[in-house]
Amino acid sequence: MKKAWLIMIAGLIATGCSSSSQPECIYNCTPTYPNNGNNNHGGGINTGNMTNEQAIKALMAYLATQAKKQWGDDEFLQAGKHRYVKYFDGYRTRAHIDFDSGKIYVSTVAQYAPEATLKKAIEETLLMPADPSQVDLFSDKSIPLNGKPFLLGQVKDHDNQDIQWPWRAGRFADYLIENKLRTKPLKRGTAYYVEIDMVSDHLEQREYQYADLIKRASRQYGISEDLIYAVVKTESSFNPFAVSHAGAYGLMQVIPKTAGADVFKLVKNKPGIPTKDYLFDPANNIDTGTAYLHILQTRYLRDVRNPTTKHYSMISAYNSGTGGVLSTFDSDRQRAMDKLNQLQPNQAYWALTNKHPKLEARRYLEKVLNFQKEFQSL
């Protein structure tokens, strides 16, 4: 195997590398930044004068530009609500976790020493900390390996053991490269990658990590635990690194300028809006998301008389806002509330899942309620 790699690397160097006599950086290179700004997240992009939505779009756009230079448009991947994607090494290497399918892919298009590059990326992925603030999704910065690994219990090595320490992660990486390495031809060369299966109950393993936080928020705001669990599963599949183009962050996909601002003003008595780093913290995120459900229940939708109808309405409003819920019934808010109160819960449910102005919101209510039933049966 080693001999084959030496032959492969020699061929790659001859055909694919730069004409420079200096080999390209293998790993832990100086991070690639667009400018010399002082922002610690997103490669130094100056987002100080942008709204949150503008800032997240700018960060994602910059990352996309850099990654596409290495991977091309067809193979580009970006982090999302149910998908973790982290680039390294001048954007030539990436880790991709699909939380819905329970698969981890670590890949590189590096032309110099891809084996060593892959090993380092596998180790960083397996040992990345549970604290999302330590992981910059918007640049190619390395991940500091400290604290309890986020994937602990969600992945087993080839000896069916948990992976908590660097020596075990390195050993497993060697095994994967020796036995599971795959290649894929790309328009710009060859990608080298390994695929790692997560354990069958990986979702439950992530749920356990946040059980205490959910219980605390439930007691504080009077929102049932099963509803909080259902919202988190719908929004992120318990992915604390979740981001969206709308500028939502974390487990419950809180948008700072809407739900976040309301919670700061109406519950926390704080000025301004929560920051990205604040919302990437799982404790803050679950607290803020649950507090917003409390606001919907006790303030914005307090005039909904039937408790079941109110429950349906607040779930729908978490996704699309109170205005979206009321516009399902009438363009005038007061008339809409009156019409809503005249309906039976099953009629309100039908309207919200068939007549809501946004298709996503129609499906959202159905998903959350189905997940809520699952958590109620546990």
Rank of each mutant, 00 (worst) to 15 (best):
L145N: 06
D332T: 04
N319A: 07
Y193Q: 03
N46C: 09
I286G: 04
K156M: 11
A261I: 04
K187L: 13
K265E: 15
K358D: 15
D174E: 13
N52T: 14
M1P: 13
M337Y: 01
Y312I: 07
Q205Y: 01
R83A: 05
I214R: 02
K120C: 02
L203R: 08
G323K: 02
S236A: 09
R168G: 00
V267N: 03
V325N: 01
S133I: 14
D73M: 08
P282W: 12
L301S: 07
K2V: 14
V109S: 05
R216I: 12
M198Y: 03
L352I: 06
N370Q: 13
M314R: 05
E366Q: 14
F280S: 08
A283G: 10
F172Y: 14
P240G: 12
L296K: 03
H311S: 11
K265Q: 14
T328G: 07
D281Y: 01
V199K: 01
Y292Q: 02
A361I: 01
N285G: 12
L359S: 14
E225S: 15
V135S: 10
E53K: 07
E53H: 03
A173K: 04
Q154P: 06
L152F: 01
Y112S: 10
A61C: 07
T190N: 06
F138M: 04
A248P: 10
K141T: 11
A317H: 00
D140E: 09
G43R: 01
P31D: 07
K180V: 06
N38W: 08
M8C: 05
Q154M: 13
I177F: 07
S331R: 06
M198A: 07
Y62L: 06
A351T: 03
L12M: 15
L251T: 00
S20M: 10
S101W: 00
D197L: 10
A67V: 04
K187D: 12
A95F: 03
A248C: 13
M252Q: 03
M60Y: 09
K103I: 15
A261C: 05
T30M: 11
L151D: 00
D287C: 03
G272D: 11
L301T: 02
R362H: 07
G11Y: 01
A110S: 15
M1F: 09
A61M: 10
A291H: 02
Y221G: 09
L359F: 10
V263R: 01
K187E: 12
A110D: 11
I7W: 00
C25Y: 12
A55M: 04
D157A: 04
A130V: 05
D136V: 05
R219I: 13
L145P: 06
K270Q: 15
K257D: 15
D73A: 15
S133H: 07
G102N: 02
Q54E: 15
Y112V: 15
L126V: 09
G48T: 12
A348T: 14
H202P: 11
N269P: 03
G11R: 03
S244A: 02
S224G: 06
P271G: 14
M314A: 02
T234L: 05
M252C: 11
L365S: 08
A248I: 03
L152M: 09
S107F: 06
E123L: 04
D73W: 06
P307L: 04
R305W: 04
V243N: 05
V199N: 02
L352Q: 00
